[in-house]
Deep mutational scan, measured.
Amino acid sequence: HNLTITQGKLFFHYNPKLCLSEIHKMEEVSGTKGRQERNDIALKTNGDQASCENELLKFSYIRTSFDKILLRWEPYWPPDFRDLLGFMLFYKEAPYQNVTEFDGQDACGSNSWTVVDIDPPLRSNDPKSQNHPGWLMRGLKPWTQYAIFVKTLVTFSDERRTYGAKSDIIYVQTDATNPSVPLDPISVSNSSSQIILKWKPPSDPNGNITHYLVFWERQAEDSELFELDYCLKGLKLPSRTWSPPFESEDSQKHNQSEYEDSAGECCSCPKTDSQILKELEESSFRKTFEDYLHNVVFVPRKTSSGTGAEDPRPSRKRRSLGDVGNVTVAVPTVAAFPNTSSTSVPTSPEEHRPFEKVVNKESLVISGLRHFTGYRIELQACNQDTPEERCSVAAYVSARTMPEAKADDIVGPVTHEIFENNVVHLMWQEPKEPNGLIVLYEVSYRRYGDEELHLCVSRKHFALERGCRLRGLSPGNYSVRIRATSLAGNGSWTEPTYFYVTDYLDVPSNIA
């Protein structure tokens, strides 16, 4: 807008934040220059609390790290170098490059900038070799853009010569660093050979998330399962459950009422301010606690030095998902009996873990797994792929695949051998790939016309006998059925096997 004052003059007093240069501009645009008398524009009460600059400061050096910015700028000295009290560095987070010096300023003089007072450097006698002032900004957020400017702080001049310097606002972004852990990993099994893994992005990506790394490792069953005799009275049979499938998407929606109208769909109840505040506090606490764990609990591995020492970490090797089922080394339970199943799973520490690289999504279907087997899954978020990966501390989750139908069934015939004193040795093959492992066998036998009897055969007993022995049988026709019990439950009964026990007292003698 054009402003013209045809008559009258300007009068400025007691404006401590208004620089004289701005008042002189007002004289020019209003056409009143030359009308004012000496005392109409006070030299001592206008701009006496402001830094009124008329020179431009330029930054000469900028260096960044993930949490620091090192700045240096060209030296500046007023005509009387004693008038320079120091520099004021202003900075704040700036997602967009549209910041002005006066953003967030209120009537009390406060604003949204963080201000650092910096002492002037030592003055050199040689004007050509003056030290460049600077400042190291610490405690910054990774991968965050900051708006920065600097200006001088000078003393009051009796001659009211307006001098000083100020830089333009520059924008500097800190470097990326390792992201925080992925949030809320959930693993479920939808079949006997697959596990579905879902997660949420890290709360602090500290860069642009480029991919996720998912490692999985087959877990050995508890050692007590191999040692305890679950045929003993009072000892509860062990059981394991597989990871249940995901709930429906509708039930997972946030901010939804727990109660549904019987007449149909209901609208979600909005969260109160107290609920939102509580969630923010919980989120802040979780982030602080995660940072504490990362800094205190997890110790970084030592990389190899120039002395030739090897990095103890196993090298990563990509495998196809079809090879995942046989990740671990199978060892027989008892070496003397080769027909026992290889369900003991000690994992070799030198073995390469299978892994998958996930790009542009937060889910993965891990296939080719062994049925009813526990897996430990390790999830890392990465925001750099080359020249070397920059990934987060791992988040861990466990899951067990679903049982395989008929995996616990005894394959092959049940054979028998009759000894003296009416002892019958029953023999059968253990299931080759049971659900988890076989903890015991149930032997059901009966003599024709009598009630059915049951015998429990422990895992250890089966390994020693290759089956079991029935003792003290009365003469007669017998039928026997056997079924295995694994961590997933009972298998199917075998087809009945028949044998006849004679009275050993009636056996004919070869003595003449």
Rank of each mutant, 00 (worst) to 15 (best):
K271L: 09
T401A: 03
C269N: 15
Y259Q: 05
N490M: 07
T303G: 09
K406W: 09
C231I: 01
T303N: 15
D222S: 08
L440H: 12
Q384K: 08
F355Y: 08
S363Y: 05
P403R: 13
W493Y: 06
L277Y: 14
F499H: 01
N421L: 07
E433Q: 08
S348N: 15
P475E: 05
V397R: 15
S363L: 10
V443G: 01
T373H: 14
E378T: 13
A309S: 15
P403W: 14
R316C: 02
P496Y: 10
E420K: 09
K233A: 10
E389K: 12
V345D: 08
D250W: 07
K278N: 08
N255D: 10
S320L: 11
N208D: 15
K278G: 05
A488V: 10
E224R: 07
Q252S: 12
Q252T: 13
Q219P: 08
T502V: 12
K460N: 12
Q275P: 06
S479W: 09
G234P: 05
P413H: 13
E281R: 13
S342C: 02
L487D: 11
S341W: 12
R466I: 07
D503L: 12
S274V: 08
I438D: 03
P244G: 11
R447N: 13
D323L: 04
S474F: 12
L453F: 09
D204P: 02
P475Q: 12
E350V: 13
Q219S: 08
E389W: 03
Y498L: 03
G308C: 14
R376A: 03
P244L: 11
S486G: 08
V411R: 11
M402Y: 06
T415V: 06
L473H: 01
N421W: 15
S341Q: 12
V424Q: 02
T494E: 01
A263N: 05
F285Y: 12
E282T: 05
V324S: 08
T497P: 00
R319F: 14
V324M: 05
S239A: 10
G325S: 10
N255L: 04
E452T: 10
T347C: 07
S243K: 03
V424C: 13
L228R: 06
L225E: 05
Y504A: 06
S444P: 00
T347M: 14
L440D: 07
C391F: 02
T340N: 08
S342K: 10
V397N: 14
G489A: 12
E281F: 13
V365Q: 15
M402T: 10
E378L: 10
W216R: 10
T307G: 03
S239G: 13
N490T: 08
S315Q: 08
P475H: 12
E224S: 12
S444N: 00
I410A: 09
T288E: 10
R446P: 00
A399M: 09
L277K: 15
L321I: 05
K317T: 07
V457Q: 14
Q256M: 14
E290A: 11
E265Q: 11
S304P: 14
S304K: 13
M402K: 04
N295H: 05
G306L: 07
Y504S: 04
S284P: 05
F499S: 01
Y396N: 02
S367Q: 10
I438P: 02
M427I: 12
F246S: 11
A263C: 09
S479I: 05
R313W: 03
Q256A: 15
R218D: 04
E350T: 13
S283A: 12
N326G: 05
Y230L: 14
E442Q: 05
S492T: 03
P508R: 08
P300M: 14
E217Q: 14
F215E: 03
V457L: 13
C269R: 12
G325D: 15
H294R: 13
K302Y: 09
G234C: 07
V329M: 12
S203G: 06
T328S: 15
C456Q: 01
I366V: 08
R469Y: 07
L225D: 05
S274I: 02
V334Y: 11
N339L: 08
F499I: 11
D222G: 04
S262I: 10
A330R: 15
T241M: 08
P354Q: 09
M427W: 10
L379E: 00
Y445S: 05
P403A: 12
S509Y: 07
R481E: 10
H461G: 08
E265W: 14
P245A: 07
N360W: 15
Y292R: 07
R313N: 10
S251H: 12
E452C: 12
L487Y: 10
D450T: 10
V365K: 00
G412I: 04
S363I: 04
E221T: 03
K278R: 06
F298R: 11
D323K: 08
S320P: 03
F246V: 08
S363N: 03
V411C: 02
Y259I: 02
V299I: 04
E247G: 06
Q219F: 13
T401L: 05
E404M: 06
V331R: 10
A336I: 08
F499G: 00
E465S: 14
L293P: 02
G491F: 02
T307P: 09
T502M: 09
S239W: 11
I377C: 07
V501D: 02
V397G: 13
P387Y: 14
R390W: 12
V214R: 00
P312H: 11
L487R: 05
